[in-house]
């Protein structure tokens, strides 16, 4: 397995507390501590309302914890300025959301390329990026649909475009919040295979919030949240991991 970074723990969560509301305060996460190894495929499971999305958004630097901190290879998110955080998300993180969230104004390949536009690619890089976007769309099985308007694609196809988009900048970590939440079993299976392939080919660290037992069971590690606390954290033995896919 290829390693993306030379740090062992790509993410460290230290004493994460999240409180929503100002007048009526609800504590949703009650001091979480855990580390994610580089190249690991982690599933986060738990009942609805247990704080999975809240945790994932904090890990993805989209939201800030009320207390505690997140370290990316030792670097504290909280010490980065807004623009640096934006750059950081663009370069190091890939997001896949439950509601795929493609931009309906753009075609499939344009949606995949948007993260590269944001950071601004120069002339000769653009050609390279176009080819990479095509390759990624081919990998997710959408070779025939690259120039379709994103609204002309089925739910599963859109989700796969979103996966390609999350991968275009070759992120260190791929984060997914119930990425197969509203897909049928067969598509879910295909997408899981895809995750595993990405994990093994690029050494990408995967953190997936999921309801789906199939996916959870086939990942390297399962963190279960109950009411904002880590109820269990099970890791598979290293040697059994490779042949799970």
């Amino acid at each position: 397995m290829a390693e993306k970074t030379n740090c062992k723990y790509v993410l460290k969560a230290e004493g994460l507390v999240k409180v929503y509301g100002t007048t009526v305060k609800t504590e949703v996460l009650h001091g979480l501590n855990f580390s994610v190894k580089s190249g690991e495929f982690t599933s986060i499971i738990g009942y609805s309302g247990s704080g999975k999305s809240t945790l994932l958004n904090i890990l993805g630097a989209l939201d800030v914890p009320t207390e505690g901190r997140i370290l990316f290879c030792g670097e504290d998110y909280g010490k980065m300025k807004p623009d640096e955080l934006a750059d950081f998300r663009n370069k190091n993180l890939g997001f896949i959301f439950q509601f795929h969230h493609l931009l309906p104004e753009f075609t499939a390949i344009e949606n995949v390329l948007i993260p590269t536009w944001i950071s601004g690619v120069s002339g000769h890089q653009r050609e390279k990026m176009n080819r990479r976007a095509e390759e990624l769309l081919e990998m997710v099985g959408l070779k025939a649909f690259i120039h379709n308007k994103s609204t002309d694609l089925s739910g599963g196809q859109q989700q796969r475009v979103a996966i390609a988009r999350a991968l275009i900048n070759d992120p260190t970590i791929l984060l997914g919040d119930e990425p197969t939440g509203n897909l049928d079993t067969e598509t879910t299976d295909q997408i899981y295979d895809l995750f595993r392939k990405i994990n093994q080919t690029y050494g990408t660290t995967l953190i997936m919030v999921t309801h789906n037992d199939q996916i959870a069971k086939r990942s390297d590690r399962i963190i279960e949240l109950i009411d904002g606390r880590i109820h269990s954290d099970r890791e598979k033995a290293e040697e059994t991991r490779a042949d799970v896919g």
């Binding site: 807004p82 623009d83 934006a86 998300r89 931009l103 993260p115």
Partner: peptide, 16 residues
């Protein structure tokens, strides 16, 4: 707003 939210999540700066 949905598109803007996504663009921001993907690293679009406020200025942009």
């Amino acid at each position: 707003s949905k598109q803007i939210g996504i663009l921001k999540a993907m690293g679009t700066k406020d200025r942009q």
